[in-house]
């Protein structure tokens, strides 16, 4: 019992991280139909910015957190302006290849700025782990869960209650129709990039204290986030959240009851299964009902 609880805690923490990364993928996809394979690299940037600001430059936690997110979101905007928008024939495959190129570029930049060594920082609050029926729950995990919940609520509000959010949804449904009714679609795409990469930075910043940050951490996290987004249904907010938690928990249980060697395989076998059986994902019910 104690073990199962421990696996669950471990899965919840990892799952929350996958969920935030999946959210970034999903958001961008729903407003631009683009998969940004450089997303993992923005997670890495967020994590390393956070370490530099909070641990090395001695910024207080909250300014460091928001500064990292703003910096990474700015990098995301720059990426859209310099690499995505100037493309003359913006076919999906061309754009996807550009994002793959960008991920290699960003990893190189990360290596030049932060070096090849890993970096670590202290947790957000110094509490000993909580004891829940014999299993240990990290305080940082609670932080992660709270931040992810707040982020999801904020996003939901943004899409449902604000004009900009609704305009963005409109863009996602039909770019041309949105343009005809006067929505500045180019600005919406730019905004989607900023929000999505900012989301990546949030994921990076909240995991910085529980793991080690290094220039090459983004690839695997990006892939796992992509799996989670596919699992839940690409383009769906709740799908991304569900996919992320499902993936994290299944991975942890896989380690516990099958074999730790198969941890990463769990994610990818799940992805293959979903692609075969239900290509639209668990929640995504096809194009029509996406919104």
């Amino acid at each position: 019992m104690q073990e199962i609880l421990q696996y669950l805690f471990s899965g919840l923490t990892n799952g929350a991280i996958y969920a935030v990364i999946a959210l970034g993928f999903s958001m961008l996809y729903s407003s631009t139909e683009l998969i940004n394979f450089a997303h993992g690299e923005f997670v890495m940037l967020g994590s390393l910015c956070m370490v530099t600001l909070a641990a090395n430059l001695g910024f207080p936690l909250i300014p460091a957190f928001f500064l990292s997110i703003c910096a990474v979101a700015a990098a995301g905007l720059l990426f859209e302006r310099l690499a995505i928008r100037p493309v003359r024939h913006p076919e999906p495959i061309v754009l996807i290849i550009i994002t793959v190129g960008a991920s290699i570029f960003l990893r190189g930049v990360g290596m030049l700025i932060w070096g090849k060594n890993a970096h670590s920082m202290p947790p957000f609050s110094q509490h000993p782990p909580l004891d829940v029926a014999g299993a240990r729950l990290l305080v940082q995990s609670i932080w992660i869960l709270v931040i992810v919940a707040a982020l999801t609520a904020a996003l939901q509000m943004f899409y449902r209650r604000t004009l900009t959010g609704k305009a963005m949804t409109a863009c996602a449904v039909s770019k041309k129709a949105a343009w005809i009714v006067g929505i500045p679609t180019k600005w919406m795409v730019l905004l989607a990039f900023g929000l999505s990469t900012g989301m990546g930075a949030v994921a990076g910043a909240i995991i910085a204290p529980i793991t080690m940050s290094s220039y090459d951490m983004g690839t695997m996290l990006g892939l796992k986030g992509f799996c989670a987004a596919m699992l839940g249904g690409l383009g769906s907010l709740w799908g991304a959240i569900l996919g992320g938690f499902l993936l994290g928990i299944l991975e942890a249980l896989g380690v516990g009851f099958i074999s730790s060697g198969l941890k990463d395989a769990t994610a990818f076998v799940l992805l293959l299964l979903v692609l075969y059986v239900r290509p639209q994902g668990i929640i995504g019910a096809g194009e029509v009902k996406r919104f």
Partner: peptide
Amino acid sequence: SQSFGASDTDMTAQLTKIRQ
């Protein structure tokens, strides 16, 4: 005997299994 990926972020599941 457990294993972990070179860039994994959390090894509590493996350690829990060893502790058992």
